[in-house]
């Protein structure tokens, strides 16, 4: 309890983290509320194309097909964040399980799981995702699965290292002496102590997942039914010289969001590392 409170205080003491969290809260709120106020589809072509920003009824103007840019941006925020979060969940689920099991059981289990991990690490990530999306068909789920499959090895490696050092602690021996089952020891005794570095990596992973998804959409491999920031940039690419704002606006959205998530990740690193947290409180 006191730990939770001091973690909160350490997070708030970090100005960058506070700024990042405020920005993310704003993005989430707008993404949740704006479509309620303006229930049109972001794909609806209701106006003249290439309207400049600050036109009446179209705050950020319209694109080459007359779609409202602000509406696209808001729906893009929904799906970009959603894809970022979901693919991180996929990646954490695989990575934590593989890393924890490999680190705790050692021996041939460890050997096999680590060779599999290396197999995924040596394949160029973007190529594997593109392959998966092409094979599975371009849906949001295949994009999420692809990103998750490519990013879990780093989680697994961190997790394994943490578990390797924790499994020799006396409280783990004590639990074994009490007769607790190995999987219970792993999940009840070890995991809660091993999560700090993983949480930090996860926050950065949300950001990189958004970037990967944008890259895929830019290449035309995203879900064609889902409006994302990457799609908006990609679609506006032929008009880069005439209407550069159409690419720049979603681009800036990506930059700011990724920056905010990284800042939150930084402050988490500091807050979860007691020595740095104390320094931050003094400063």
């Amino acid at each position: 309890m006191s730990r939770g409170r001091s973690l909160g205080r350490a997070l708030l003491a970090h100005k960058g983290g506070l700024l990042g969290m405020a920005f993310l809260a704003l993005v989430v709120t707008v993404a949740a509320v704006y479509p309620l106020a303006n229930p049109r589809s972001p794909w609806a072509m209701g106006a003249r194309p290439f309207l400049p920003p600050l036109t009446r009824g179209h705050l950020l103007g319209t694109d080459m097909l007359g779609r409202d840019v602000l509406l696209g941006l808001v729906h893009g925020a929904r799906f970009s964040l959603l894809i970022g979060l979901m693919s991180t969940v996929v990646s954490l689920t695989i990575g934590i399980t593989v890393g924890a099991v490999a680190g705790y059981f050692r021996g041939w289990t460890d050997e096999i799981l680590m060779r599999v991990t290396e197999f995924f690490q040596i394949i160029p990530g973007l190529v594997l995702i593109m392959l998966l999306v092409v094979v599975l068909g371009p849906t949001m789920w295949s994009v999420v699965a692809g990103i998750g499959v490519v990013t879990w090895p780093s989680v697994a490696r961190i997790m394994r290292a943490e578990v390797l050092s924790l499994r020799t602690r006396q409280f783990v021996d004590a639990a074994r002496g009490l007769g607790q089952r190995p999987l219970a020891i792993l999940f009840v005794q070890i995991l809660p102590n091993a999560l700090s570095p993983v949480i930090v990596v996860a926050s950065v992973m949300v950001a990189s997942a958004i970037l990967i998804e944008s890259g895929l959409s830019f290449l035309g491999l995203g879900d064609p039914n889902v409006m994302t920031w990457g799609y908006m940039i990609g679609a506006a690419r032929p008009f880069l010289r005439d209407a550069w704002l159409l690419s720049a606006i979603p681009g800036v959205a990506i930059v700011l969001t990724v920056l905010a998530i990284n800042m939150v990740g930084d402050s988490l690193t500091t807050a979860l590392n007691p020595r740095q947290a104390r320094k931050a409180e003094r400063a």
């Binding site: 006396q170 409280f171 639990a175 009490l178 007769g179 809660p192 102590n193």
Partner: peptide, 18 residues
């Protein structure tokens, strides 16, 4: 296992901090 139990050396390491 209940038949034999152990008290470890370091009371700071033998209790799960979480």
């Amino acid at each position: 296992r209940h038949r034999i139990q152990m008290v470890f050396q370091d009371p700071y390491a033998s209790l799960n901090p979480r």
